[in-house]
Design a protein around this nucleic acid. Sequence first.
RNA 1: UGGGAGGUCGUUCAACGGUAGGACACGUGGCUCUGGACCACGUUAUCGGGGUUCGAAUCCCUGCCUCCCAGCCA
Length: 561
Amino acid sequence: MDPTAEAAPAAVDFIREIVADDQRTGRHGGRVHTRFPPEPNGYLHIGHAKSICLNFGVAAEYSGLCNLRYDDTNPTKEDVEYVESIEEDVRWLGFDWGDRTFYASDYFEALSQYAEQLIRDGKAYIDSLTADEIRDYRGTLTEPGRNSPCRDRAAEESLDLFQRMRRGEFPDGAHVLRAKIDMASPNINMRDPTLYRIRHASHHRTGDAWRIYPTYDYAHPISDAIEGITHSLCTLEFEDHRPLYDWVIEHTRPPFRPRQIEFARLNLNYTVMSKRKLLALVEQKRVAGWDDPRMPTIAGLRRRGYTPEAIRDFCARIGVAKKENVVDVALLEHTVREDLNRRARRALAVLRPLKIVIENYPEGREERVEAVNNPEDPAAGTRQLPFSRELFIERDDFMEQPPKKFFRLSPGVEVRLRYAYIVTCDRVVKDESGAVTELRCSYDPESLSGASASRRVKGTIHWVSAPHALEAEVRLYDRLFVSPDPGQDGRDPLTDLNPGSLERLTGARIEPSLAGAEAGTTVQFERLGYFCLDPDSRPEAPVFNRTVTLKDTWARIAGRG
RNA sequence: UGGGAGGUCGUUCAACGGUAGGACACGUGGCUCUGGACCACGUUAUCGGGGUUCGAAUCCCUGCCUCCCAGCCA
């Protein structure tokens, strides 16, 4: 037996199993071709990323191709703004579709030809019932529907009506083209579904050329066939539509027969994923826009500081199956931390500054201490940090009456200033209200980092030199919703919004080496988390978004007590 | 009381008649000039009931639960 065949097989999902099997048996001559088919009616989100990674991933792994195809069959909901954002996002995620950018609207002419053929074949007819009447005739989940009085209209008459619909002779809703299937089918999608409707609306690509537009159920299978899509991957809610997908292919007889396979869409706890709900957040100004860093959109994640690598890794880890699922956002956060830990340079920054004065450090003196840029990557080198008599430390790093296990600064306790000296707090200065305004400290001149006599202390805290530090705005993000399942039980998800999802800190101080960094730059502020320079930054007024905190064992311990 | 799909650790994915495993989360310890990273160890699962089989998460029967479908949305 071939020893390589005995090696533990990499776990592949059921879709890759099907694709591999088709390829092995020579189906379609071994050719694999997928497509990512967004409707340009909103921004892409992390759920789309799952589909993108699946479709492009399968194509790449089986030496195939993946098309980008806009499912733009409904002019009233779509817009060019969205097609531009979609291309940017897919590309940013790291995928390339060459020159294979397609639109369902590219096929409008072919689609209407196939429709006329269907009419001539007696497989479709023009129905002149109103939308309400059609609904009425459709029956219910438990009762069969009834045939429309128009169902037996002569093919010539339907054809004539269809052509006049196309010419714009009728108002919206006057007629529709319906497939003639079975009004008694237990599958409601087969009860003479609508294939074409009249829409006197201008389309973002075809302008006013068309007054009739095909429905998804009709356009999608034929678009797949035209492009030679071998595996048409979509989400579970289309499972019921597969018989219709197959019916369209069978009766319209395009030169190729694609196969639809359904998988479960991604759900994430503490967030919403439907474009409708995301649109509501944007339109009601509950967030700053589609790219608000709290949004689960690709644009939002990008601005937040997520990397394509992290998102792709996330998509690989969640897997693909048919079971409804709710993935823990902690996994997403884990994948960015892992990626950024490897790549982000470190910096010292103080979010909520507390001034300390080192009384035994000579006034006016300053020196440079050496700091490591990335302990995970020696090649990143080192930098010099200015040190002086007056510093800022994090307010959270000082407690006048510390609980046990608080390994930070408190009166009489020694801590190390990262990369610099060991200091102790001698005196606490307060204002009239009793709030701590300043600490008077002393340092051990023999304790400089790297020096041979390296005494050990329990805690190390970060700092910046007061006269050298730059001021910055820092935006701290928390989950957008307080509920793990926003809007469950039919509530308005907006009632579950987290009022504390954004905290802006305006007086943060960052080490001077960060001056002039470009928007999009990611750094780790040591002991705090990963931060990304926001496009709102100006050279003299940098703005940092917190991508994600570091894992914080102390917060967990403190939270328990 | 129509049709379709699905039920495996807290979560997610695997195991394709042969020791229920990985990741995240959680817990304990080690290491550490980031309470980070890293390392080690650990807790926790086959929806219920019958059957077939030497052997069942897997096959059969039955019950239960969940999700989707009555747009001229996708």
